[in-house]
Amino acid sequence: MATVKFKYKGEEKEVDISKIKKVWRVGKMISFTWDEGGGKTGRGAVSEKDAPKELLQMLEKQ
């Protein structure tokens, strides 16, 4: 499965696309949330040019 790689608060992170729940556009950035388990929700953002095609497809479906 595809993953999204991004930096959050200076830390490199990687999230499996299948865990992503919500995707939206903020200017030229793609923001998203995912389920971290245990009732926690993670947040992240990646530039439109660095976003994997699967993430962009999720954005178009909404």
Rank of each mutant, 00 (worst) to 15 (best):
L55W: 02
W24F: 05
M1Y: 04
G44E: 04
V46T: 08
W24K: 05
Y8F: 07
L56W: 04
E11Y: 08
D50V: 06
K7Q: 14
E11I: 08
M1I: 10
S18P: 07
V26R: 10
D16G: 09
I30N: 00
Q57N: 11
K22R: 12
F6V: 06
V15A: 04
I30R: 00
K61E: 11
G10I: 01
W34D: 00
A51D: 02
D50I: 07
Q57A: 05
W24P: 00
V23S: 04
E60N: 08
S31C: 08
K53P: 08
M58F: 05
G39D: 14
T41Y: 09
Q62P: 12
K22H: 14
R43I: 05
G39W: 13
Q62F: 05
E36Q: 02
V26H: 12
K5W: 02
D35M: 11
V23Y: 05
R43V: 10
V23D: 00
R43W: 02
K61H: 13
R25D: 11
E54W: 13
K40A: 15
V23C: 05
S18L: 09
P52Y: 02
G42W: 09
K21P: 04
I30Y: 03
W24A: 05
T3G: 05
L55M: 03
V23G: 03
K7L: 15
G27E: 14
P52A: 09
G37K: 14
G10Q: 03
E48R: 04
G44T: 04
W34H: 08
Q62D: 15
G27D: 15
E54M: 07
G27L: 04
P52R: 02
A51M: 04
A45H: 12
K28E: 15
F6D: 01
I20E: 00
L55S: 00
K21Q: 14
A2W: 02
E48C: 14
K22Q: 14
A2H: 09
V4C: 02
K9Y: 09
V46Q: 02
Q57L: 14
K5N: 03
L59D: 02
G37W: 09
G38N: 06
F6K: 00
L59C: 10
K13I: 14
M1D: 08
E54R: 11
A2I: 12
K22Y: 06
T41K: 11
W24R: 03
T33W: 04
G27V: 03
G37D: 14
E36M: 12
I30P: 00
F32P: 00
E14I: 10
S18N: 06
V26A: 11
V4A: 01
G39Y: 15
V46F: 02
K5D: 01
K61P: 15
V26S: 13
K13G: 02
V4I: 10
F32C: 07
E12A: 10
T3M: 09
G44S: 13
G39C: 15
G42C: 14
I20K: 00
M1V: 06
E36C: 10
E12S: 13
K13C: 10
Q57P: 01
K9W: 07
S31T: 07
A51H: 02
I17K: 02
K9D: 11
E12C: 09
L55Q: 01
G39L: 15
E36N: 05
G27K: 08
Q57W: 07
S47R: 05
K22V: 13
V23H: 01
S47C: 14
K19P: 01
K53Q: 10
V46W: 01
M58W: 08
G39V: 13
E11A: 07
E12D: 10
G10N: 08
G39A: 04
I17R: 03
K21G: 12
V15Q: 02
E14F: 03
I20L: 10
D35E: 15
L56T: 10
K5G: 01
K22E: 07
G42A: 12
K5H: 04
P52E: 03
P52H: 06
Q62W: 04
K19D: 14
K19G: 14
F6Q: 01
K53C: 14
D50M: 09
M29T: 07
L56F: 06
K40F: 14
G10A: 03
E12I: 08
Y8H: 10
K28R: 05
T41Q: 06
G27P: 08
M58N: 03
T33P: 00
G44K: 03
K21D: 09
K28M: 08
E54F: 11
G44P: 00
V26E: 11
S47A: 15
K49N: 11
V26L: 04
G42K: 07
L59M: 09
K22T: 12
D35R: 03
I30K: 00
L55G: 00
R43D: 15
L59F: 02
K13H: 13
K49L: 08
K19S: 09
E36H: 05
G37L: 15
E36R: 03
G37P: 11
V46L: 07
G38M: 07
K40V: 13
K5S: 03
G10P: 00
S31Q: 12
I17E: 03
M1K: 05
G44N: 04
V15P: 00
K19N: 06
V26M: 04
A2D: 05
G42S: 13
K40T: 10
V4H: 00
Q62K: 01
D16E: 10
V4Q: 00
S47E: 14
G37C: 15
P52N: 09
P52V: 09
T3V: 09
M29Y: 05
